[in-house]
Design a protein around this nucleic acid. Structure first.
Length: 608
RNA sequence: GCCUCAGUGGCUCAGCCGGUAGAGCGAUGCCUUGGUAAGGCAUAGGUCGGGGGUUCGAAUCCCCCCUGAGGCUCCA
């Protein structure tokens, strides 16, 4: 907020005509005059909207300070937009100016507020003494959360329906032990860079985009392919369970009350933007669009549970700069987000159970080990203890249980699944949350069996977590396992599934024919037609993590068999073409397929 | 955002108590037509992250900024 304070002998003003944003005023306010007044020309700025109460309080103190120094009789608050180039919305400005008047009046001052939104003529006589002209920039000090006042959560390990102390529990899974150590703040850090950052660049998957903001990536064809396959995978997974795909905008109007309240809970981490007349935020999840669809849809109890799904390409979070790293924490990311409307808590618990199964399945399909944390409020646990114990069992191994003494957020129960990275730190992937606030806030209702309007419970679920984190986890996994087995993607995600290496130029035509055959069987295949030695080509294929490498020479051209290097097992086998096709088909069974978005011949490729 | 460290050809790095840049990989060309993790020779490619300063002279010393990494803090 910008203030220009003038100690005046008199000020008089006269309203001329209304602007679009003019407030309605009584006739006597159309023309007024004040003697010996401190005139406070005021511009309310955009950033002032974040914490208006404290702002008004700070402005009050400053005005009183000047007022008492100059010895005026009146305070005149005069809206004056020209003091700032980034103004708040007119509505909010009016409210803030009115609050200033009220709070100063309550302190016993004579305060007048000049009408807002009118073209006015005014005449002022400045006293001209040293303190008669002052400007002030009123700011709100960042509110520091009194963390110590909050009662801390309690952590347990929940195994076979019994609670154990995480410090003394005998862990079978070292990953769970690491997760517990991290959550309890006992993890000592090694100070290294997570290996996936280097790998994502080396493998031409993705890189930082220097011309964007920090934490926004460019994706190269291989990375894009993996993203698309993962997107297809989640799409199939949720639509098979009955979720309906939708797509919603990436930006929302902050003048919408529900949006603003929901957004304010997220605090500093939003991207804000605007047009001439609107202040907008970029979405940090699909909630806004999903809730507005659900709010505008007529639902009855027979429809429930009902799920809509969106892949948010992109969601935006203004994460702190020092925290943005690789694929693990980004400012622009892709999140599969499903919202399920449930009639009541009971139905939400049934649905939650089935979503646990779905999330656990993604760990199997993606070949990532997840460890689970169940987080509940104390009240929720008390009312649903049997359910909590039974649901935790569905994970199939011990889980970490956090009990929050009070509900802090919109959820009463959530389950997070985390992969553990090379450095032993969790990457939070799938999540399920029971939301008891948003139904009401976004005016989502359904008609109950007795024709009464009811407010549902909503479950948020991301079956895999962000696509970028999934890829990050896969790369971390490969780094962890690389001591024992050669690093690679699951076959269905491998950009190249089969690479054919012709030994000499005379084997090229046959190799290309072979490639066409594989291609027609929905296998991603390429041919290393470069003028290099077999040794060199083998090395390149290994660097590209190709799961099956076929060497084609004179012998192969005379038979139906090919010499296959199998990356996973390090075997070198003579196989029939049909066998290798069925082997890959079996490994990729029921997983999505997309063709190779790169030239078939390696000689035609570019390096990114 | 704060603290610490770093930024040199497309990539990985050397040079850094000042004397105006060097290697390997990759790329390109030629030779080699090869049977399982780098065949040989040659060539091109850098205003040393950006700006300012000190100096006869700065990749090298000083200041500011940008970018990256780690830590702190945070993750509804």
């Amino acid at each position: 907020m910008r203030l220009l304070l003038i100690h005046s002998d008199y000020i008089k003003y006269k309203t001329k005509s209304k602007t679009k944003i003019a407030e309605n005023i009584e006739d006597k306010k159309k023309e007024m005059q004040f003697q010996n007044s401190l005139v406070v020309f005021t511009a309310v700025e955009e950033k002032d909207e974040e914490n208006p109460e404290e702002l008004v309080e700070n402005a009050k103190k400053e005005i009183i300070k000047v007022f008492s120094q100059v010895g005026a009789d009146n305070i005149v608050i005069y809206p004056y937009a020209h003091l700032s180039s980034s103004l708040s919305s007119p509505d909010r400005a009016k409210n803030i100016l009115q609050s200033m008047k009220e709070i100063l009046t309550a302190e016993g001052f004579n305060v007048e507020r000049v009408p807002f939104g009118w073209y006015k003529s005014f005449e002022i006589s400045c006293k001209g003494h040293p303190l008669s002209e002052l400007s002030r920039n009123i700011q709100v000090d960042r509110v520091i959360k009194e963390k110590s006042e909050e009662e801390p959560s309690k952590f347990h390990i929940l195994s076979e329906g019994k609670l154990y102390d995480p410090d003394t529990f005998k862990y079978e899974s070292s990953d769970l032990k690491k997760l517990a150590a991290y959550e309890l703040g006992n993890l000592e850090s090694s100070g290294e860079e997570p290996p996936h950052v280097k790998i994502m660049r080396e493998k031409d998957l993705a890189d930082y985009e220097p011309a964007a903001d920090v934490g926004h990536l460019r994706w190269y064809p291989k990375g894009r392919l993996i993203r698309d396959l993962l997107a297809d995978y989640v799409y199939n997974l949720v639509t098979e369970r009955g979720a309906m795909p939708v797509e919603t905008p990436i930006m929302y109007d902050l003048d919408d009350d529900a949006i603003r309240v929901h957004a304010e809970k997220f605090g500093e981490r939003q991207y804000r933007m605007g047009t001439k007349n609107k202040k907008l935020m970029l979405r940090y999840a699909c909630c806004f669009g999903a809730f507005n669809i659900l709010s505008d849809t007529f639902l009855t109890w027979k429809n429930l549970p009902l799920a809509i799904y969106e892949l948010s390409t992109y969601s935006f979070r203004l994460e702190k700069r020092g925290e943005v790293v690789g694929l693990k924490r980004l400012r622009g990311f892709t999140m599969p987000d499903m919202h399920t409307v449930c009639a009541d808590v009971e139905q939400s618990l049934q649905e939650f159970d089935s979503q646990i199964d779905m999330c656990a399945q993604t760990g199997v399909d993606l070949e990532i080990n997840y460890e689970a944390i169940m987080r509940v409020t104390a009240d929720f646990l008390e009312e649903n203890e049997a359910w909590v114990l039974q649901s935790a069992k569905k994970v199939g191994k011990p889980v970490l249980l956090e009990i929050l003494p009070k509900r802090k957020h919109y959820w009463i129960c959530k389950m997070d699944f985390a992969a553990i990275d090379y450095l032993g730190r969790p990457i939070e992937n799938p999540t399920i949350q029971i939301d008891v606030e948003s139904g009401e806030r976004f005016d989502i209702t359904y008609m109950g069996p007795d024709e009464k309007e009811l407010t549902p419970i909503i479950i948020h679920c991301s079956p895999t977590g962000s696509i970028e984190r999934v890829i990050g986890s896969l790369l971390e996994n490969s780094a962890i396992k690389s001591a024992e087995i050669p690093p690679m993607f699951p076959v269905w995600l491998s950009p190249t599934q089969i690479r054919i290496l012709p030994i000499a130029e005379r084997h090229l035509d046959y190799s290309l024919k072979l490639a066409e055959e594989f291609k027609s069987k929905k296998i991603r295949v390429d041919v290393d037609d470069r003028q290099e030695t077999v040794g060199k080509k083998i090395r390149t294929a290994a660097g590209d993590w190709v799961p099956y490498v076929l060497v084609v020479g004179d012998k192969e051209m005379e038979s139906n068999q090919v010499m296959v290097n199998i990356r996973k097992t390090q075997e070198k086998l003579l196989m029939d073409k049909e066998d290798i096709i069925s082997r890959i088909q079996k490994e990729s069974q029921s997983m999505p397929f997309r063709g190779l978005p790169l030239s078939l011949k390696l000689s035609g490729r570019v390096q990114f």
